[in-house]
Amino acid sequence: MSVIRIAMVEDDARLRCAISEVFSKEKDFECVGVFANGQTAIDEVPRLKPDVLIMDVNLPDISGVECVAQLAPQLPGTQIIMLTVFQDTDTIFNALGAGAHGYLVKPVMPAKLLEAVREIRAGGVPMSRTIARKVIDFFQQPPPRQHDIAPVEDVVLGKREQQVLDLLVQGYSYKEIGNELDIKVSTIGTHMQRIYSKLHVRSRREIIERYKR
């Protein structure tokens, strides 16, 4: 079994310890970098090229979303998981748009953390219903056209992707969606990956512009 190389950005020392301890006890994980703030992470993480980057949304210096926006393009092989709280729906969505692949709501139990990381590595793509609703809204809006940058490439959701999202928003689990649409759960995962990719493409430039200001 290949080892999953983990890097983490978390400003609270106790949580940093607790999380790195969780990974250090597992044989299939290696914690290659732990950072207390965004700038150090932006400087160091591209060199480390971890498989998974766990990123706290609230950082003292640079926002987690901006970190993602800067790091994601440099790390095509890295999957980024945001650590967040419930009320940061907008932030989560922005982070996903900026290049993150999933998020975990604090407090995260060790088992849940490990499970989520393994799932993402295996191609699973979780998405909450609330986020799914925002994704649908996002794709229904016309792409932003600003006079000072070139028009963003217009990316639309495929029919199946739209169906999957619609059901997800209504509360259907992946399994229920599979039953409803008569497709495999793994196929749903593929759709979700595509949805994420399109989300990245469509929103990244906008987000980068926004955070540059």
Partner: peptide, 18 residues
Amino acid sequence: LHDEMGAGLSAIAMQSDS
């Protein structure tokens, strides 16, 4: 409260689970 207690309690939760 949130930053201090939230992080501390999260650490307690994770460590106690460990």
